[in-house]
Design a protein around this nucleic acid. Sequence first.
DNA 1: GTCATATATTCCTGTCAAGGAATATATGAT
DNA 2: ATCATATATTCCTTGACAGGAATATATGAC
Lengths: 107, 107
Amino acid sequence: MEAVFSALGEPGRLRIVELLRLGPHAVGDIVERLGMRQPQVSKHLKVLAQAGLVKVQPRARHRIYHLDADAFEQMREWVDSFEELWAARLDSLGRYLEELDEEERDQ
Amino acid sequence: MEAVFSALGEPGRLRIVELLRLGPHAVGDIVERLGMRQPQVSKHLKVLAQAGLVKVQPRARHRIYHLDADAFEQMREWVDSFEELWAARLDSLGRYLEELDEEERDQ
DNA sequence: GTCATATATTCCTGTCAAGGAATATATGAT
DNA sequence: ATCATATATTCCTTGACAGGAATATATGAC
């Protein structure tokens, strides 16, 4: 997870990922659509690939990048692991204490 | 989202967040449990707070930090926005093309 | 083969962020 | 008011990383 977050925590890379959400794109496409320079795009894609977020697929002399569903499934599980715990605490002591705290804060 | 990912993309902060998943903790608790130095913990918590991931709640002379559910709900929606699109493409042309690509790759 | 196109890599430089140490602030106890 | 404890902030230094420019590599066209 850490590599994933670190990779997404950079503006350019996040833009690339959100572009790839629309579907696979060649490097040149990304360069053109996002107005970034080709070497930086290649470097960002390398980082994203190392984090497992994207995969490549050579197509003639183009390299088509696409998101890897597994990475997103793992992210989803990670996020869910938090919300599950909160849901479990909602009807127990934790809930009571949290309400107390909120009232206190409002005063 | 960018600030969130950037905040989580640092080992120490990720550890703090995963500790807070177990429930609210005072700064000293975090320091002790994670074996980090107090000033760094405070600084990390500041970054996490600015990203909206944690909230504070003063309790005597302690400051109890806890995760903010809204931030995780937003993350969840972000991740879902990817998986939804893929699901939508599964029974359309995209699916067909992707299968073609996979076969090609295996050869 | 040569050439052109698409992409990756290298090298350099500047910037930013993390850690360490010291210090400041806040709050409760006496 | 003084002191102790808990936490935050500042300053400094160093390392990592992003961008730019140039160059290398791969692949297809001819």
